[in-house]
């Protein structure tokens, strides 16, 4: 059953990153890899930058593994929308937190699956920092130099947050570089070359350099 997103209004789309081609590529890639997740038998699945909630809701609707689904976003409007998406689709065992993921040290060592479609657009360092402070839709895009500043912070966080058997599914754009892990899918959308990668803890450590 596909996730119902009909409640998302025009107004929502101006304030929260709407379900887009990268969103659906991430959904399709993670769903194609469900047997891997099943074998991990996760307790905590978190989505970093949950946005509209489309990705997390799709996973929470899938009954092929038993776990808790937590969505975190820095944009308050996104957390409200994600919560209504989960509710509307009758999900259970989820929660939403409004916060900067990089300050959530209470997640360390506990998370089994991280899903993230990060802000990956190339901007100046200043713009990245400014957009992180704004905590609005601009925080969805700005990725800093090479679109890598958020991603590099994400690697550092993910390495600390994941349990030993944990994995991260991350979407990225070819200008961000290449990373150790298993590329699950690739798609060209206009001038962007999108890909989704699955990285284990060791691979994340390698990416940290």
């Amino acid at each position: 059953m596909a996730v119902n997103l009909k409640h998302i209004t025009k107004n929502d789309r101006q304030q929260v990153y709407p379900p887009s081609q990268d969103t659906f590529l991430l959904i399709d890639s993670v769903v194609s890899d469900l047997s891997y997740i099943q074998q991990i038998d996760p307790c905590f699945v978190i989505e970093i930058g949950v946005g509209s909630g489309a990705v997390l809701t799709t996973l929470a609707m899938n009954q092929s593994f038993q776990s808790v689904f937590i969505g975190v976003d820095i944009n308050p409007k996104a957390t409200l929308l994600a919560k209504s998406t989960l509710e509307l689709n009758n999900c259970k065992n989820y929660d939403i937190v409004n916060g900067d993921i990089f300050r959530q040290k209470g997640f360390f060592n506990k998370i089994d699956v991280i899903i993230c479609n990060p802000p990956y657009v190339i901007t100046s360092k200043e713009e990245f920092e400014e957009c992180q402070k704004r905590k609005d839709i601009s925080s969805s895009f700005a990725g800093g130099e090479d679109g890598r500043e958020f991603i590099d912070k994400l690697f550092d966080f993910a390495y600390k947050a994941l349990s030993d058997k944990g994995v991260m599914y991350m979407l990225f754009e070819e200008h961000n570089g290449s990373f150790p892990g298993k590329v699950l899918s690739e798609q060209r959308v206009g001038c962007e070359g999108l890909a989704v990668i699955r990285m284990g803890k060791e691979q994340i450590r390698e990416a940290l350099g």
Binding site: I74, K83, V97, G99, D100, R103, K135
Partner: peptide, 14 residues
């Protein structure tokens, strides 16, 4: 609020 904990800091606290 509305079931969502707000952990965000003010700019001055960051």
């Amino acid at each position: 609020d509305k079931g969502i904990p707000n952990m965000l800091l003010e700019d001055s606290e960051e």
